[in-house]
């Protein structure tokens, strides 16, 4: 229910008060630059939900610094922060209908970024446990080019082929055209009849799925 507060602000809330669940405050009076920026992002996101591409690209571009700062706060290593940014942008795209324009855009975005940062840390932890951190390991276990190593390589190639075959058609097409046949984006677009944007998104999703599959992650 909207309330007019003593400070002349409209407070829209339908739930319990809590520190991190504050309703989005739309001030009638002049707001600070950061509040104005957030209001602008909220308005862009609302327009993006209605299909405004320009507003969407603006809100995503202006979200990058917040996503990076959330990832840093969660303790994501510097070299993985860009991956968290990419994953967050993809998640934002997938769940953009869950944003409620009467609430804070930054809180919504930060929650998604924080989740993706935790996922990145977890997957690094899993990879770290699997890898052998012994500098003598290579000397102790030289990579003998024997039948078993050859067999293992073949097995891996087979697994990769199977994993590619199981991808959804759009993603499989992107991997085949861009990854395996090494076509340029324009060539692949002309061949498949899809636009380059869709091809890039499909390739990104396919690589993520394959990485998960090959590393045994869900």
């Amino acid at each position: 229910m909207p309330l007019l507060t003593a400070g002349g602000s409209w407070v829209i809330d339908d739930g319990l008060p809590s520190p991190s669940d504050r309703p989005f405050t739309v001030s009638v009076e002049a707001a600070s630059p950061s509040e104005q920026a957030e209001r602008q992002r909220a308005a862009w996101m609302a327009a993006a939900q209605a299909g405004d591409r320009r507003a969407y690209e603006r809100v995503l571009a202006s979200s990058l610094s917040l996503i990076r700062s959330v990832a840093r706060r969660q303790g994501v290593p510097v070299d993985s922060i860009d991956d968290v940014v990419q994953e967050t942008l993809l998640t934002v795209h997938r769940v953009r209908h869950t944003y409620d324009p009467t609430r804070s855009f930054d809180a919504w975005l930060a929650a998604i970024a924080s989740r993706r940062a935790i996922d990145a840390l977890r997957s690094q932890g899993r990879r770290g446990r699997r890898e052998v951190h012994d500098e003598f390991a290579l000397d102790q276990h030289p990579d003998r080019d024997d039948a078993s190593a050859e067999g293992e390589r073949e097995q891996q190639a087979l697994r990769l082929r199977d994993a590619i075959a199981e991808l959804p058609p759009g993603q499989r097409e992107a991997v085949e055209q861009l990854g395996l046949k090494e076509q340029t984006l324009a060539e692949a677009a002309a061949l498949t009849g899809r636009n380059t944007g869709a091809l890039k998104v499909n390739l990104h999703r396919a690589l993520k799925a394959l990485r998960g599959r090959m590393h045994g992650e869900p």
Partner: peptide, 10 residues
């Protein structure tokens, strides 16, 4: 590039 691609899919 990703923002551009996501915009194209919007």
């Amino acid at each position: 590039a990703l923002i551009d691609a996501l915009g194209a899919e919007l």
